[in-house]
Amino acid sequence: MHEALHAFWVLLKRDMTLAYRHRGELANPLLFFVIVVSLFPLGVGPDSKTLQVIGPGIIWVAALLAAMLSLDSLFRSDYDDGALEQLSLSPYPLSLMVLAKVFAHWLVTGLPLILIAPILGVVMFLPAESTWTLIFTLALGTPVLSLVGSIGVALTVGLQRGGVLLSLLVLPLYIPVLIFAANAVNNAAIGMDVSGQLFFLGALLVLALTLTPLATASALRISLN
């Protein structure tokens, strides 16, 4: 058990180092997130009332798309250079190794979204009371997106053109997170209680944490076959 935990940390450190060495790419999902959100005022008009109504949904849909687009880098390079195959041969459970990789991936792609979201909330005229709810929902929701998405990536990593297919597989599975999170932010904006939605998101996170690494590991084994 202790050794497996050690392997977890080593892999996490390795992935973080790799991400740091390619730090030019780190900003891409973040920029995508910001650009998509700023397109909407251009599309629907600058009226602050309209933007306030659609703001939470837009920020969340944009976060969802940003999370999905960044997924491809989760296993791609390790699959190409054979590191993934070595990982699957290691004595440690593959699901734990997957969890380490997903965690590292979330730290570099999901966490920045949470940090920038309050600014986007201001841009979309969200009332100040809902900012914390926006941060909480992103903190609970984006790990779920990374975890559920990892199944889709694991299934398509062996394919040459998996990009569009990945969105087809993963986006329907993201719907519950979107519903609860956007609804929580909407409710917070009108001063309603949001603990129910946050509990639901927490439950989804726990469920995803426990089950998705197993599914991702078995999907990876199929892709490596």
Binding site: I151, L155, L169, A215, A219, I222
Partner: peptide, 9 residues
């Protein structure tokens, strides 16, 4: 096998 995993998810 891959689509079976997806169907189970």
């Amino acid at each position: 096998r891959a689509s079976a995993v997806l169907a189970l998810v």
